[in-house]
Amino acid sequence: KKSYVLIKVKNPKTKETHTIVVPEENLEEVLKALASQPNVKVVDIERFP
């Protein structure tokens, strides 16, 4: 059974918020990819039960 993680990201320029759902096993690479985006800020990470 896969567990999923909900990542909320915000664009500081446009103030838009997006929610991305990723499998927990991919969380680290997704966070690394997001960290390299200049106008993306991770605001929240939630685990799915």
Results as ranks from 00 to 15, higher is better:
E25Y: 05
I45M: 06
N11C: 11
H18C: 13
S36R: 12
E28D: 09
R47L: 08
A33P: 00
E16D: 07
A35W: 06
N11I: 07
R47W: 14
P23A: 13
P38M: 04
V22C: 09
P38I: 09
V9P: 00
L34K: 00
D44Q: 13
N39R: 05
A35V: 05
K41Y: 09
V43N: 02
V22Y: 01
D44M: 13
L6T: 14
K15R: 08
K32E: 07
Q37D: 13
Y4D: 04
I7F: 01
K15T: 05
E28H: 10
K2T: 08
Y4F: 09
T19G: 04
E29C: 10
P49G: 06
V42G: 01
I20K: 02
T17F: 11
V42F: 03
P49F: 05
L31I: 04
T14V: 02
N26Y: 15
K1L: 10
N39F: 05
V21I: 13
L6P: 03
N11K: 03
R47F: 14
I20E: 01
P23M: 13
L6N: 09
I7D: 00
N39Y: 05
E16M: 11
P49M: 06
K1C: 12
K32G: 04
K15V: 03
T19P: 01
K41T: 13
V9R: 00
S3T: 11
E28K: 08
P23D: 11
V43H: 03
R47Y: 14
I20T: 01
K15L: 12
K32R: 13
P12Y: 15
D44K: 11
V21H: 03
P23W: 14
K2I: 11
K10F: 15
V40G: 03
S36A: 13
N11D: 08
H18G: 04
P23L: 15
E25A: 08
P12E: 15
I7Q: 00
T19I: 13
S3E: 12
E16T: 09
P12S: 15
E16I: 09
H18W: 14
T19L: 11
P49W: 03
E25S: 07
E16L: 11
D44S: 13
Q37W: 11
R47I: 12
S3G: 12
L6V: 15
K13I: 15
V30P: 00
L6C: 05
P49A: 06
I7K: 00
L34C: 02
K13S: 09
N26V: 09
E24N: 04
K2G: 14
V30F: 13
L6M: 14
V21L: 12
K2S: 07
P49D: 14
I7N: 00
E25M: 05
V9E: 00
H18P: 00
V30Q: 03
V5W: 15
R47A: 07
K32N: 07
V43Q: 03
E25H: 07
F48T: 06
K32Y: 05
E46V: 15
I7L: 04
V21N: 03
N26H: 12
